[in-house]
Design a protein around this nucleic acid. Structure first.
Lengths: 129, 129
DNA sequence: CCGCATCCGATCAGATACTG
DNA sequence: CAGTATCTGATCGGATGCGG
């Protein structure tokens, strides 16, 4: 199997700096919290800060804020502050964010599908060791 | 757009522990080095330890060993030790590993495609701040 | 050649306390 | 409600040195 990865010019011809950037990008975008938030917002449409916090299992307020900021910075979502008291801030995925969610769909399904097999493999490995 | 993510039962019905596991799995599998190694082995077929090290830009020997071990533990690749002197160890993706690479293909392409847009978004954001 | 063990600085992430 | 600021333990990751 050859061209499973990208349109795939031979690897040697890919500019290492692009690889670097793509990789860094994926590294952050594939981040634990980013993925969960992405998932919630895909389902939920527009959501408030606290709603996302409640929807994402064990996230701390700090990580929620931080991750949302990064996603906003990357253009994955919009942040709308309503000047009311008490404050209300809405988050909503952009087209870019929705596209990313879609791209991740394959990985998510893969993980879900092969989870058992992987856990089995781990038990096996740990036993032999 | 509703069911971009999985076969998608309403989120409330997903077992949180499965979410947890899938997430953890993705977190590690989407790891910087794991992805690069996955890519190299997809292209290269069977490769020696040192060959992978050379192919992956800035990886340290420690991280290479560590990442390869984790991938082996997860059943993503096989590790074959040839009892010769000097030692020779071959690594090769399993079907599981190849499947993962394929699943990541979409994300990779997405990242490559939208890299410019994201960088622009970041410059924008940083300027306003 | 392949890999393990150790040390150490850097970064991450939770808990807590405080503000408009 | 939606943050910011600070402290602290945990983890990551590179560098170095040694061993089969």
């Amino acid at each position: 199997m050859e061209s499973v990865l990208p349109p795939s010019p031979p690897l040697a011809e890919i500019d290492p700096r692009v690889t670097q950037l793509v990789n860094e990008l994926i590294g952050r975008v594939a981040d634990k919290w980013t993925m969960l938030i992405l998932e919630e917002l895909t389902e939920g449409g527009t959501m408030r800060f606290s709603a996302i916090g409640r929807a994402v299992p064990g996230i701390s307020q700090k990580m929620l804020t931080q991750t949302l900021r990064q996603m906003e910075r990357d253009g994955l979502l919009t942040r709308t502050v309503h000047p009311v008291i008490p404050p209300r801030v809405d988050y909503r995925l952009t087209d870019l964010g929705l596209g990313l969610a879609e791209a991740f769909c394959g990985v998510w399904q893969w993980a879900e599908t092969h989870l058992d097999r992987i856990e089995a493999s781990r038990r096996d490995f740990d036993q032999r060791a």
